[in-house]
Computed example of a mutant assay.
Amino acid sequence: AMRHPLGRRPAEAYPGLACPSAMYISCIEPRQGGQHRVGPSRLAPLARKNLSEQIIDAIRNAIVEGRFRPGDKIPEAELAEQLGVSRTPVREAFKLLEQQGLIEIRSKHGTYVASMNRAEAEDGLHVRAALEVLAVRQALERLSIQEWDELCGRYEAMLQDAWRASDTADAVAGIEFDIAWHTLLVESAGNQALLRTWSMAGLSNLIWSFEFELYPLDDVAFKSWVLRHVEFLDVLRGRDPDACEEAVRSHILIKVDDVDDVDG
């Protein structure tokens, strides 16, 4: 089965956000007996602009890069100190990230990077596929031929970002491309209820930290992932409703096959 370029399958945080790649430095935590362990990485301070969005991006990128692992605790006070912000925007970011399924806020215990088992991952992918199939169907119904062609043109232009990410093995840039494209696709349906639902239920499967445990980063797989986007674009250009719906469904659910292959 095709391996995901970012290390695994086409993965995809918050629609419409700018996605600056944050800088991180390692945090070595002392342990008893003179031993040390590498703890969750410290994050670089942020410029004071759109703080909640920047915090979301910083945490999301840390998850993508594997610097925050499933089950890691993210102390609110320490994170605020690392990023150079107050705790208020950190709390706001935590609430949104929890809604997206990327973190878990446990009463009286703190905030943790969400863990996802394989059954939950597969269920989430089926939900996301259903939502994006609806988005494609409604976009085809509601957009003029010219508007649809413009959408495909934007997709083609965005693919240059995917190729650059592949050339530099930049997992964060690859995820940013995936987020931007799939957000644009869902937005093109002109259905705000669908967009809100997808943002909360489908978007977390684009930042699928679980899959980073399954697949090693591979240059050939990364390029294969971009080529699958090229094939997807070719189908969309044809404007055939059945073909477009099947293309988006297959594009997402191939990740289910990947999990099954690993289990097998």
Rank of each mutant, 00 (worst) to 15 (best):
Q35M: 10
G34N: 02
I28T: 12
Q35D: 09
A22M: 11
R37I: 12
G33Y: 11
R48I: 09
S21M: 11
A44Y: 06
S26C: 06
R48V: 03
R42I: 02
I25Y: 06
S41I: 07
Y14N: 03
R42C: 09
L43Y: 01
E12K: 07
A44L: 03
E29R: 13
Y24A: 10
R48A: 04
I28N: 04
L17I: 08
Y24D: 01
S26Y: 09
P45I: 05
M23I: 07
C19K: 06
R37L: 12
C27M: 09
A18F: 11
P10F: 09
P45D: 06
C27G: 04
L43D: 00
P15I: 11
C19V: 12
E12I: 12
S21Y: 02
C27T: 13
I28A: 05
M23W: 06
Q32S: 11
L43T: 12
A18Q: 14
P15Y: 03
A22P: 06
M23L: 11
S26M: 13
A18Y: 05
G34D: 03
Y24T: 08
P15E: 01
G33A: 03
E12Y: 14
C27N: 12
S41V: 11
P20A: 04
G39I: 01
A18P: 11
H36V: 15
C27Q: 12
C27W: 09
P15A: 02
P30A: 10
A22G: 05
M23T: 08
P40V: 14
A13M: 14
Q35F: 10
Q32K: 13
C27S: 13
L17G: 00
G33D: 07
P10A: 01
A22Y: 01
R37D: 11
E29Y: 10
C27E: 09
G39M: 08
V38C: 05
L46Q: 00
P15G: 02
G33W: 14
E29H: 13
A47T: 09
G16D: 07
E29M: 12
G34P: 01
I25F: 14
R37M: 10
Y14S: 02
R48H: 14
R31N: 12
A11N: 07
P20D: 04
G39Q: 04
R42T: 08
E12Q: 11
P40G: 00
M23S: 13
R42D: 05
P15W: 02
A11T: 05
P20V: 07
P30H: 03
Y14D: 01
Y24P: 00
A18C: 07
L46W: 01
S41Q: 07
E29S: 08
R37E: 15
A44T: 08
S41A: 13
G39V: 09
H36M: 12
R42K: 05
M23E: 14
S21I: 08
A22F: 01
P10W: 04
P40H: 00
P15H: 05
L17P: 00
Y14C: 01
Q35K: 11
Y14M: 04
R42F: 09
V38I: 15
P40R: 01
P10Y: 06
G34W: 10
E12S: 12
R37C: 08
G16K: 05
R48L: 02
P20S: 08
P45M: 07
A44K: 03
G16T: 06
P45L: 08
R31Q: 15
E12D: 12
R37Q: 15
S41P: 02
G16E: 10
R48T: 07
S26F: 15
I28K: 06
P30G: 02
A44E: 05
